[in-house]
């Protein structure tokens, strides 16, 4: 049971959250203009990171908000959590 810092509610226990997959994958505004390959990449291609991973969580059984997190997959420690639309805090960046 991880302890996750919701950017709205503070540190809360994992049962209140639902994992939301990799973060910073934006739905293309004009899907019709994408090739089949580009669309497939958007739908299915995800990182499988050993190390820092940018991911989404939703505080479903709390404030209900989606937010982003940087988590080290090797030890489950969160480096930061931040609101949707925001960049990671200074000194951290989204791994690519």
């Amino acid at each position: 049971m991880l302890l996750i810092e919701c950017p709205y509610c503070g540190e809360r226990p994992e049962p209140e959250f639902v994992y939301g997959g990799q973060a910073h994958i934006v739905r293309p505004p004009q899907p019709q203009e994408l090739s089949a390959q580009q669309w497939a990449d958007f739908l299915y291609q995800r990182d499988n990171t050993r190390g820092v991973h940018a991911e989404r969580w939703r505080h479903t059984h709390g404030c209900g908000r989606f937010f982003n997190a940087l988590r080290d997959t090797t030890n489950d420690h969160f480096l930061a959590t931040y609101k949707v639309g925001e960049s990671p805090p200074t000194g951290l960046r989204v791994p690519r």
Partner: peptide, 13 residues
Amino acid sequence: LAMMEDYLQTEWS
């Protein structure tokens, strides 16, 4: 409901 909130909060805010 979760899917609706997802699109609303993260794609079409």
